[in-house]
Write a protein that binds this DNA or RNA. Structure first.
Lengths: 248, 248
DNA sequence: ACAAAAGTGTTTTTTATACACCCATGC
DNA sequence: GCATGGGTGTATAAAAAACACTTTTGT
């Protein structure tokens, strides 16, 4: 984890042999079920040792000729069919003994996990259940004990998601092409919690920024006045790139 | 790098063998020369292939039994003697062919670099020049072509430093125990550039936050009114932890 | 006395926050 | 007609930005 303070230590392991690594990629894949206002994370049931029959983040070991990012996309492609997604690298967990396989026969081999963080559109995401495999969306509030240090990775990913939402337009990667301002607001509430902003202020702030265009199309969801559908305008957003834009 | 968009690709390298990795740790070590208002980065001259006689970020390969972070601290200890520092993980670069050694004899072995970001106190940092080794502080504005993808890593580290400075108290890890408000201001200017805030506003904002205590001690630097020395008060800062505190 | 650096205060503009209220629809 | 969600506006408070001014030193 970033931000801690160990002491400088120059023990004389100067002539220690180099470690050999297998490198795994684990994805923290989030989606938001706007209908039920739940933030979800994708978990898979492990089908081999170690941690057989434990839930875990979907992951894979990196193959020859494959980049880390390729591996992250491969996991996605194997578990889920999705059109739109946001993906970025999260953190690298690599202490010795984080994987029990390091203990056993294959002496000296270390397992390192490069984690990626993804956000997908819940409605369009289609899970791929290969034969016997368990795969499911879990509410982040109800994740069970996971394999390896995956609970820790998930916590870290959740923190990143909250930050991302505040200062970057990831939300639009995960909303439908056209959405109501309330859809957007619900997404923020679901991820960030109730107390971040009043709806009308949220609305005013976002519209003033000028990168949401009103399509004029109205949708009615049950009772109440029909809402306008808006569209994210990438060109209008361009000037805000890399600026400390604040959404909340 | 985070934030890009490749396409999902599920090529059938399903039966490809796993890659074997050596894992390197490379540190982007910054310091600020407040006397000359320069942001510096520590570079070392490589003494072996590949890229012999090129400048590079100080790095090492991870040894058996050593965690990533241990390796990062080991690099620090080998290159520099320093009391106070801030260190956190930056990013993991791991595409195939980023290291030319992957081409040659040792077929199949990949080199992956986990980069760390460090900030040290320039005045107290003592460089360790082992025998023939070149080691030097470079102004980030004048770094030469570096080995591997180290220029890219440096750019990424610089961006992180700027962000960190804006919303976290890293500056105090790198200033002397007692400092004038102008010292602090110069540090911000040096890292962030000229146009972020006027001195008196910067001053007022920071003092209002209440975690800088005036020691009463005055120092005179040439002409002009003597300045008060301030001290960072960690207890008074505690309530701001994890809050979206903004310094700039 | 005067320049230089430190430190204080004031004015203006912008942004955040908390609401009150009007609008259009389903039932 | 009234409950429901959509949408607009206003009044107050707080923060950011610009800049004028005072204080204390060295020379």
């Amino acid at each position: 984890m970033p931000g801690h303070n160990s002491k400088l230590s120059a023990r004389s392991l100067n002539q220690q042999p180099l470690a050999d690594f297998k490198v795994g990629v684990d994805n923290v894949i989030f989606s938001v079920d706007t209908a039920q206002n739940r933030l979800l994370v994708l978990l898979v049931m492990r089908q081999q040792e170690p941690f057989i029959n434990s839930w875990s983040l979907p992951g894979t070991l990196v193959r020859q000729g494959e980049s880390l990012e390729d591996a992250a996309y491969r996991i996605m492609a194997e578990k889920i069919r999705v059109e739109n997604l946001y993906l970025e690298q999260l953190y690298t967990f690599g202490g010795p003994l984080r994987d029990p396989r390091e203990d056993s026969t294959s002496f000296g081999v270390r397992y390192l996990s490069v984690s990626y963080f993804a956000l997908v559109r819940f409605e369009e995401a289609e899970l791929i259940a290969d034969k016997v495999a368990g795969i499911a969306w879990y509410s982040v509030k109800q994740v069970p004990q996971l394999a390896f240090d995956h609970n820790e990775i998930l916590t870290y990913g959740h923190r990143r998601l909250k930050n991302k939402l505040e200062y970057s337009p990831v939300a639009f990667d995960v909303l439908p092409e056209m959405f109501t301002l309330n859809d957007l607001y619900q997404l923020y509430i679901t991820v960030l919690g109730e107390n971040f902003s009043d709806y009308s202020n949220f609305r005013a702030r976002l519209l003033k920024l000028g990168f949401l265009s009103d399509t004029g199309i109205k949708v009615s969801r049950g009772a109440g006045r029909p809402a306008s559908l808006y569209r994210f305008n990438a060109e209008a957003f361009a000037p805000f790139k890399d600026k400390p834009l604040v959404f909340i």
